[in-house]
Design a protein around this nucleic acid. Structure first.
Lengths: 356, 356
DNA sequence: TTGTACGCGTTATCAC
DNA sequence: GTGATAACGCGTACAA
């Protein structure tokens, strides 16, 4: 709290140090401005008065907020699952934060929750120089509306011809590589896929990659995933039970993400089925837990942090050159072979890159 | 990008809908203002023009940014360790974000990195209505200076008589409870503590709790931790090797956090020592991975998300009543008994609460 | 090198 | 229910 009462302003600092507000303004912006004595005097009074330049006034005058925004979907609603893992979103936030902070901008984050959905988004849009919007947080219509007033970069949205910059991960290629490994290195021919929530573009792309790999190997491609697990541990467990009860005896179950696979591992243990001996299991994302479960999970590493970094970088380029043509960045994944696929303790079937 | 060129302003909307700016301003703020026809007309033109109210102008006029800030220390510098885990900070951020967003405020986050340390902090301070500052991100002096211009809540700082609101976790009691369990339920009498980084208040408090429990049981209290592990997996592994090489044969090693304990688990496996049969190991924090390692880690659950929630809540109270007396919130931890302490698969020594 | 004066886009106050 | 007008605190031509 301010000591006296009213907060200090640039004018107070100026008067108290016997210079004009212009001088004060310049001194604090430009570390090489003015005579040494003036500088010192100004800086000193500013400190004495506890003056912190008002960001709103600055932003208004300079037409630059010095803030980039990040909008993401509310993950809490899927249930208690959010407690569990080092979420995707956290990593993205950290990546974004890093790039932004190093460039001297702060990051404004907000989950778009059900209630004041649009209101919040618009409010955020008004406060930032640019906005990164994660898939599934806003309707296309709202995104378009917002994009009229502030530069927007889309994150992990469904690939398609949009008019906005966007950055995503090559989910399809990642799934293809993973499945090809299961088929070629292990000789599995009976594979099923467990998807994430209904509308997830990530899940859809991974399933597409799954199918492509089967096709490339001359195996029949399913029209639909064998089950849906909502990207949660709980959902993965449920899906696994369903498959087991249906008498499905797939040799390998390819889960749309790690959390579902981890949930399934528990179910299989209880059912006295050994992984990978009886049934192989794989995930996707390579979350921190993946290497610690038993058996360690074979999965596809997704550069989540880099996703956030690139998104903000893209935003900065756009801010720099507003007129440049739209850009799309596709980040690549890589296969992380551990043991749940059937690769044993030491250098078994798979000859390629293994985790160091 | 704006379609025409210049962004729409409230004035443009006002003129185009034949009303004053005052009316436009009220219509968008107050969902029950004006005649229905006026409302509709204004809202319609606003949408057509793609007008998004300028946050800076709003903030300047209303003396309220609608933003709360969160400053945290840069964790990247400790090395690659940051990649590994569902960090503490992430949870705090999520908690803060949730409470703030539900109250209609956005959250501005920034890691305080080495370089423009203070500059960034001050810049953030100017942009927000209030600030949550995590321990070890800023010097006491800078904190004091910033607190003169904007309400500040300290997070997890060392308990002591400061003049600022603050929220923390009762690390000491948590450690005490954990160690008492090791002594009473398992009969261990030869325990050592591995600390975090040098200046960490969390680590210091946990060590204090460790000592108190030993004292209460009539066991000798060490003056210093047996080793230091920097709160990282790597560091924990190193510390464990050190203890082993020194010929230390403690019956139980109490690590200052989970990550170090997890690092140690690997070392013990390589050394052919069985946990908990040969040596018991415990952590602190209850990060997501803790339940998945083998053996599952006995640890102390720390309500990290709640920490963030409470901090923002405290900030809001302060904003509401600037003159109220300073408040301190101490959140309690709870013991999470799994297997690394010696409690077996099913209801062994420990009769109290177990993980459900 | 330093100062004057205006404008940034919105809200609050007061009048009608 | 609606409008005119004065702040809000700072940056920055432009002038000196």
């Amino acid at each position: 709290m301010p000591s006296g009462g009213a907060k200090a302003t640039i004018r107070a600092v100026a008067e108290r140090s016997g210079v004009s507000t212009t001088t004060v303004s310049r001194v604090i912006q430009d570390s090489s401005f003015g005579s040494t004595s003036t500088r010192r005097r100004v800086l000193k009074t500013a400190a004495e008065l506890g003056w912190v330049p008002n960001g709103a006034a600055r932003g208004l005058a300079s037409r630059k907020a010095g803030i980039v925004g990040l909008l993401f979907p509310d993950l809490g609603q899927s249930g208690a699952a959010e407690e569990q893992s080092p979420l995707y979103v956290d990593e993205v936030i950290r990546g974004a934060e890093k790039v932004a902070t190093l460039a001297g901008e702060a990051v404004l984050i907000a989950a778009v929750r059900a209630a004041p959905r649009r209101a919040l988004a618009y409010s955020v849009a008004g406060k930032v120089d640019g906005l990164v919007i994660m898939a599934r947080s806003l309707s296309d219509k709202d995104i378009a509306a917002i994009a009229r007033s502030v530069p927007v970069v889309l994150l992990a949205a469904k690939p398609g011809r949009r008019s906005l910059d966007h950055v995503a991960v090559d989910n399809r290629a990642g799934a293809r590589e993973l499945v090809a490994h299961l088929i070629e290195a292990h000789g599995y021919r009976d594979l099923v896929f467990v998807s994430g929530p209904a509308g997830s573009p990530d899940s859809a792309e991974r399933f597409a990659g799954f199918c492509e790999a089967l096709g490339a190997a001359g195996l029949p491609q399913p029209a639909l995933p064998a089950a849906e697990g909502g990207f949660t541990q709980e959902g993965g467990a449920k899906a696994m039970r369903l498959l087991l009860n249906q008498g499905q005896r797939a040799r390998a179950v390819v889960f749309g993400n790690d959390e579902m696979a981890i949930g399934a591992l528990g179910v299989l243990r209880e059912a006295d089925l050994r992984v990978p001996r009886d049934i192989a299991v794989t995930g996707f994302d390579d979350i921190a837990i993946a290497r610690h479960v038993s058996p360690p999970l074979t999965t596809v590493h997704q550069p989540m942090r880099e996703l956030g970094e690139q998104a903000v970088q893209l935003l900065f380029s756009r801010l720099r050159e507003p007129a440049s043509s739209r850009r799309a960045v596709l980040l690549s994944t890589h296969l992380v072979v551990r043991e749940s696929c059937g690769c044993g303790g030491k250098g078994e079937p798979y000859a390629g890159r293994r985790e160091r």
